[in-house]
Write a protein that binds this DNA or RNA. Structure first.
Lengths: 214, 214
DNA sequence: CACCGATTAAATCAAATGATTAAATCAATT
DNA sequence: AATTGATTTAATCATTTGATTTAATCGGTG
């Protein structure tokens, strides 16, 4: 009965198709994806794709929006939390985000290669937390920097570094694994290590003043 | 005469077509690229594409191989130099590589999204310097770590961090610029700053021992 | 049983696309 | 002037691909 063909079930199959579409789209990108691939991957047939979703574009937009949420929300959401200290904020974000990336290793390449050029249109449609100066973590960082002997570095560098150290390994995973002779198990183990290492690195980067000859 | 139509000139136009192909391919990827786009971009017509290069695939493989050289050689080549110290090696690599990325901002996404899955076939065709344990810089790093009080961290992390901090900003550029309210000029200026910052960060990461509670 | 939405199967369309061809033009060379 | 290779123009082909349609089937509900 859980697999029958009643009215309630169209939610389930519709969801199955969406899941299949997500897998194929994130693996191959929009242009390289054939609607027939999605149909096959879903276990249903082509006609049913257009029965539920009217077009490839439409289906893609739905997927993209959800994946964009997944990609941005956990980071930007937590980054905006006014409760936690800078240090714990970073620890939480890194741990959560690396877990998410291990579950969705194709996500970064998908987002960043499909978003080429005009992110505004899509992003604005999704009500994400604000830009640079609205982010609470930037305010925290600004106060910390103003207070003392921290190196005077544009806070944007700090954000870029945090994202780089978390995300890039997954983007470069195939090449890195090849060049470094890593199998998937070793790679995942390294990523687990980075949950602790990255917050430490970020902290030392922030708190170590640059010598004069730099 | 430099623009006439003699025998020598087919080198020039063949090169122009390849350049056009490089631009379109790196901007849109293989699947989204139409041979007609390349023709238009090159200023020549479709028939001439197949006159010089027999197929889209063939043209793409030529481009991909060259771009792969560009993407890997400067890093892997310099990484293997036994002459320079670790510190200066890093400084040189970062400076050169960021310059190259400013010139070719689409290169990382292109390489890393087209290489999905099976890098071996392409990479092996290009005789690149060796893998993990053959790289001289890894030996240097290993000696340094064995010698003393450096944190005991897998050297692979060090490589990953170096590449992450250099490459990711260009991969995430559209999104970063959008979220951080940066125009292209500010972005490039930040990347220039990073030529000095990244070597410093890497060094502090390497030489700062982790406290016990980590 | 009769009805109904879900789903399939198969055929088909129209457009896009990679590739090829043939004839013409054009510029330099001989 | 004749030759030759580069390049264009335009037409055409075969496939792929997104989309639509129609008729059939299937399973649960009333």
């Amino acid at each position: 009965m859980a697999d029958g063909r009643n009215i309630e079930d169209n939610v389930s199959t519709q969801e199955k198709i969406k899941e299949a579409a997500r897998r194929v789209f994130t693996r191959k990108g929009f242009a390289a994806t054939r609607t027939r691939d999605i149909a096959e991957e879903s276990g249903f047939n082509l006609a049913l794709l257009n029965y539920y979703f009217r077009s490839k574009e439409n289906l893609f937009n739905i997927i993209m929006l959800e994946q964009l949420q997944l990609f941005l929300h956990s980071v930007l959401g937590l980054l905006n939390d006014p409760e936690s200290s800078l240090q714990t904020k970073i620890e939480i974000i890194v741990s959560h985000y690396i877990d998410m990336l291990i579950e969705n290793p194709d996500l970064p390449v998908f987002i960043l290669s499909e978003l080429k050029g005009d992110p505004e249109k899509l992003i604005s449609r999704a009500g994400f937390p604000g830009k640079r100066n609205e982010l609470f973590i930037v305010k925290q960082w600004g106060e910390l920097m103003a207070s003392g002997k921290l190196p005077q570095i544009n806070p944007v560098h700090f954000m870029i570094n945090l994202l780089s150290l978390m995300i890039f390994p997954f983007i470069g995973s195939p090449l890195l694994r090849n060049r470094m002779n890593l199998d998937m198990v070793e790679f995942k183990s390294l990523m687990e290590e980075r949950k602790k290492l990255i917050p430490f690195w970020i902290k030392t980067m922030l708190t170590t003043p640059m010598p004069d000859d730099y």
